[in-house]
């Protein structure tokens, strides 16, 4: 009984910490924005002007925060290759940042250079 509730409490605390880390990551990314080449920030009004397929991809990326093409394809129920193509289109449009971490490539919504 007590064991169970302390495990639950631990899980709750870990989730709280993970939420805090997420926030720090979202905040902290400002400092290193200048060299990732993001020119056009993706806000929700710009999101609305995207074609349907790219909007679905970008919205899922907003929800996931940072994700590989695999993770995104799982969320949107599309083929990995298709999703990867859409993500790279968004990168070329300057809305999405692409970062390599070891063998994995992570995509995230960019911070934008200008307004």
């Amino acid at each position: 009984m007590t064991d169970n509730s302390s495990t639950e409490e631990m899980i709750r605390l870990l989730r709280e910490i993970s939420g805090k880390l997420d926030r720090i990551l979202i905040q902290g990314s400002v400092d290193k924005e200048s060299d990732d080449g993001i020119l056009d920030v993706l806000d929700v009004m710009t999101l609305l002007t995207l074609p349907d397929h790219l909007r679905t991809t970008a919205t899922a990326l907003f929800e996931l925060g940072s994700a590989t093409a695999d993770e995104l394809a799982e969320r949107t129920n599309k083929e990995r290759a298709v999703e990867s193509n859409y993500l790279n289109q968004l990168v070329r449009m300057g809305h999405v940042a692409k970062n390599r971490n070891g063998r994995k490539v992570y995509f995230s919504i960019g911070e934008g250079l200008g307004k």
């Binding site: 989730r15 979202i26 929700v44 907003f62 925060g65």
Partner: peptide, 23 residues
């Protein structure tokens, strides 16, 4: 607030939704 702030605000609101769910 500019578009850049609004974009970040959206990310933070998404994170808040996750936190509430976890709580």
């Amino acid at each position: 607030k500019d578009r850049k702030w609004q974009s970040k605000a959206l990310k933070l609101l998404m994170a808040a939704k996750k936190d509430l769910s976890n709580a």
